[in-house]
Design a protein around this nucleic acid. Structure first.
Lengths: 132, 132
DNA sequence: ATAGCTGCAAATGCTTTGCAAGGCC
DNA sequence: GGCCTTGCAAAGCATTTGCAGCTAT
């Protein structure tokens, strides 16, 4: 859990037990998509004692320091993605599964200018899929 | 409110007072983006007496018969769009304003196949903009 | 007549907040 | 020590649901 500690420290986060353990789950390798509820359940199953409130706090703190990215696909809950690079998603409306699409596999040509007084922040492409 | 009645009837919906009045607000011309709360407030201000529950019911019924389209841009609330054709959106994260982008102004080339066992339902492109 | 609607209030589900106790630097 | 964190419970929102009374067809 050493590179995890460095990761947290490098973002100016204190090394609390809960933070380190949650980070351990999230960043143990591979890209992950989680909701607060999912992460809390996983933590419980791994024997990590954390309150749901702390899971929420932690997810937001990690998002603030750019260790996570929020994804808006589902109006019922907020998803967080450990892949913070630019990329897009498949969202399975049936199973509620989220899958990454590498950015270079999608090209979006936006011709129209953004509304007056605004600048483009970023482009989200969500391909909604349904079980066949 | 006559073409409204035909519109509702053509979709097999009963002509109740609330339904006709809400449809009147929604489909009086021009594309509109609303949340349940917004529509309820607007109804109240127009002197229409409807409960919030009925506004929700109505929005869902209209969506079911394809008079409206749900949009997922904002994990805090559900947006409905009177434009049911394929098109995309600008979403102003600051002001929470939604603006249409005609479909032909955006081209998306999706190369990767959808996950196993799934078919593409539709593609949503949301361009998040921020006040300058 | 009857299947479908409406409105209210209560319930639900996700998320946030207030605050006292505890832990990191 | 001081400030940040944590955990719990309570509060907050958006949304849904149960159900009794009403209404379009």
């Amino acid at each position: 859990m050493d590179h995890i500690d460095e990761l947290l420290a490098s973002r100016g986060l204190r090394l609390t037990r809960q933070r380190r353990q949650l980070a351990g789950l999230l960043f143990r390798g591979g890209d992950r998509h989680v909701t607060a509820e999912m992460l809390a359940r996983e933590a419980r199953q791994s024997g990590i004692r954390v309150s749901l409130a702390t899971v929420y706090n932690t997810l937001h703190q990690f998002t603030r320091v750019d260790l996570l990215r929020r994804i808006n696909v589902d109006s019922a809950r907020t998803w967080f993605d450990t892949n913070t690079t630019v990329h897009h998603h498949f969202f399975n409306t049936g199973s509620l599964e989220l899958t990454d699409i590498p950015e270079d596999r999608v090209s979006v040509d936006v011709l129209p200018a953004p509304p007056d007084g605004t600048t483009i922040d970023h482009v989200d492409v969500v391909i909604r899929v349904i079980p066949r």
